[in-house]
Amino acid sequence: MKIKNPYKKEALAGYLFAAPAIIGFLLLTLYPMIVSLVYSFMKIDAKGGKRFIGFANYEYMFLNSGSEFMKSLQVTLLYTLLNVILLTLFCLIIALLLNRKFIGRNLLRAIFYLPSVVPMLTTAILWKLIMQNQAQGGLINQLLLYMGMNPQEWLMDKKLIFVVLLAMSLWTSGGNTVVFLATLQDVPRELLEAARVDGANAFWQFRAVTFQTIKPVLFFQMIMCMVTSIQIFTQSVALSSNGGPDRMTYFINVMIYQHSFKDLGLRGLASAEAWIVFLVTMVIALVMFTIGGTFKKDDGTTRKGRKKH
């Protein structure tokens, strides 16, 4: 059958090229989401038998004293907040420094990017070996002893474990740094030169010119960092067991995995937990979009020109 209309032929070709992505989304994303939503209202036993129980799973999460959902959610959101702030500032500062001209700049760029290509599980295992206590021969504690300082329980202290997780996040932030560095290349040099001629110092040049140019990319990177931080899983499993110490690494994805594949009869509860996390992520994203001004109404003066008097 020949298609006479060239526009229809072009549209058909576009749908054919997009078909793998569309089919993949329907089968690997949309369908599992719908199934998990149905499962969240069911009690699923060890043999796979399903029984509709309404909102009982959701009531258990929020009202039952034996549920660890709120604790896990609080720990996850705390890590997300700290990681987004530290990662964004760290990557931006490193990108600003690497954007300057100096000898060995390309080598430093490669060094900063290299850890991000190492698989996260490999990185976590390496950091665990480095951060182990004195008895297990951890490298950091050996250095502290050599300098006459007291060794620390990096992986057993509920505060220090967060320091390790955040430091590991900064260690693997080369991808974000590269994005910021590429964005800084688009900052208009003539505007920076004009600001410098007007007497603006480095801070005001960054605030008036550089920041205004990179702000959309900066906001996008914060959104992506928020999403990936909420999904933290590998680091917790590799560094600790059962969310220790004091459940400070019992992140929401670790709990969902535990209820889905290790504990018997809690798959329906895990589905309900996953949907609550999805809604929480959406709410945080909407708040960030609102603060960023994405949903502000355009008065039309920019695109349509000045209004007639």
Rank of each mutant, 00 (worst) to 15 (best):
Q231W: 04
K4Q: 11
V163I: 13
G174Y: 08
P245F: 10
L192M: 11
V75T: 02
V35C: 04
D45M: 07
L77I: 10
M226I: 03
V117W: 04
V277H: 00
Q221W: 04
I34P: 06
S271R: 01
L28V: 07
F233K: 02
G138L: 09
A208T: 12
K101L: 08
V277D: 04
K8I: 04
I284D: 00
I284F: 10
L97N: 02
P245I: 14
L63C: 01
A124F: 03
R303S: 14
L166E: 07
D298N: 15
M147H: 07
L239N: 00
G300W: 13
T294C: 05
W127G: 05
I94H: 07
F180D: 00
Q142M: 08
P6I: 08
L129A: 14
Y146C: 03
S40W: 13
D157N: 13
S169P: 01
S67D: 02
I85E: 03
K47E: 12
E273K: 06
K101W: 01
K307S: 13
K101P: 01
K215H: 06
I214G: 04
L78T: 06
G175C: 07
F62N: 01
K101D: 12
M147T: 12
V237E: 02
L165T: 14
Q152P: 04
V217F: 10
Q134I: 13
A270C: 10
R109F: 12
K43D: 15
N141G: 08
K2C: 07
F90L: 12
L89N: 13
I93A: 15
I94A: 15
A13S: 11
L264C: 01
A21Q: 04
F211M: 12
A200N: 06
L129S: 09
L279C: 15
M288H: 04
F90V: 13
V277Y: 02
P245E: 10
I223F: 06
Y15T: 01
E153A: 09
F211Y: 15
F112H: 08
A285I: 15
N242M: 07
L16C: 05
A19T: 01
K101I: 09
K4R: 11
G175D: 09
L239H: 00
T76E: 00
M282H: 09
Q136M: 09
T80Y: 06
L82C: 13
I130T: 11
Q185W: 02
T210K: 03
K128L: 02
Y60T: 08
I44L: 07
H309D: 14
T301I: 12
L121W: 03
R247Q: 09
K2W: 12
L12V: 03
E10Y: 05
P151F: 13
K262R: 10
